Computed example of a mutant assay.
Amino acid sequence: MRVPFAQLHAPLFAVVVFGTLALSRLLSLVIPTDFYFTFQSLFSDRSPQNLLWSALGKTAAPLVAGLAAGLWCTLRWRPGSGQALGPRPGFVRRVRGQFGPTLFAAGFFAALLSAWPAMVYWDLMANPAVAHLKPVFFGLYVLYMLGFGYVSLLGLLLAIYLHEHWQGGPPGTASVSMKELSRVGALWLFNSGLAATAMKLLTG
């Protein structure tokens, strides 16, 4: 029986988690507060603004980390880079069985680490007016973490897709299909959009 995430690429996982957290920190220094997606409104009297755009801006960090990881995986592991493309079943299996789960897990874990203080110290940090929303907060953050996982995976797949598209090749030899990109992108937008909409309803 196959154990989920048993084949994670440990070095890639660590680099993507660190890169996502570092990029998130840098973005928080340059993006205006009103356009930065946080759960600060649950801990203070601050009203959230522009939540949908803020959610998309917040997930820029895992997207960029995923793109960088996808480019590295393509250049490092895809056979015949720079040559005529052909079927790459070994690389495709590695993307599906190792790199994809690694990027999803790294994005999810990075979001978990960024939320950890608020999750642990909720009773001390939360605005008393919303302290009873602790289960709701945890539920929203699960959606947020899933969004991070999916957008990290989307970055990986998008980098591979674009690299192979620019290289050119016979039809049917691509490692990533547009259908797959659309599915992962839809899952990212669904989770991020649902979390942002729920926050708007709770604090608006």
Rank of each mutant, 00 (worst) to 15 (best):
L85N: 13
G86V: 11
G86W: 10
G86A: 14
P87Q: 14
P87K: 12
R88Y: 02
P89M: 00
P89V: 01
G90H: 08
G90Y: 00
G90E: 14
F91G: 00
F91C: 00
F91V: 00
F91K: 00
R93C: 07
V95Y: 01
V95A: 02
G97P: 04
Q98A: 14
F99V: 07
F99Q: 08
F99H: 08
G100Q: 03
P101G: 01
T102N: 05
T102I: 08
L103R: 03
L103V: 03
L103E: 04
F104V: 01
A105L: 12
A105P: 06
A105F: 09
A105Y: 06
F109Q: 01
A110T: 12
A110V: 10
A111R: 03
L112G: 04
L112W: 07
L113W: 08
S114M: 13
A115K: 02
A115G: 04
W116S: 15
W116T: 15
P117C: 02
A118S: 14
V120S: 06
V120K: 10
V120Q: 09
Y121F: 15
Y121L: 14
Y121W: 14
Y121M: 08
W122H: 04
W122Q: 04
D123G: 15
L124A: 12
L124F: 10
L124I: 07
M125S: 11
A126C: 13
V130D: 09
H132V: 11
L133F: 08
K134W: 09
P135F: 01
F137P: 12
G139T: 03
G139F: 02
L140E: 12
L140A: 14
Y141C: 11
Y144R: 09
M145S: 13
L146R: 05
L146E: 04
G147Q: 01
F148S: 11
F148A: 11
F148Y: 11
G149V: 12
G149S: 11
G149K: 10
G149M: 12
Y150G: 05
S152A: 15
S152E: 14
S152H: 06
L153D: 05
L153Y: 07
L153A: 09
G155E: 02
L156A: 03
L156Q: 01
L157R: 13
L158N: 06
L158T: 14
A159I: 01
A159C: 03
A159H: 04
A159K: 00
I160N: 06
I160W: 06
I160Y: 07
I160E: 07
L162T: 02
H163C: 13
H163S: 15
E164Q: 03
E164H: 00
H165F: 14
H165T: 15
H165K: 15
W166A: 15
G168A: 12
G169M: 08
P170M: 08
P170Y: 07
P171M: 04
G172L: 05
G172A: 07
A174Q: 14
S175Q: 06
V176R: 01
S177C: 02
M178F: 09
M178K: 13
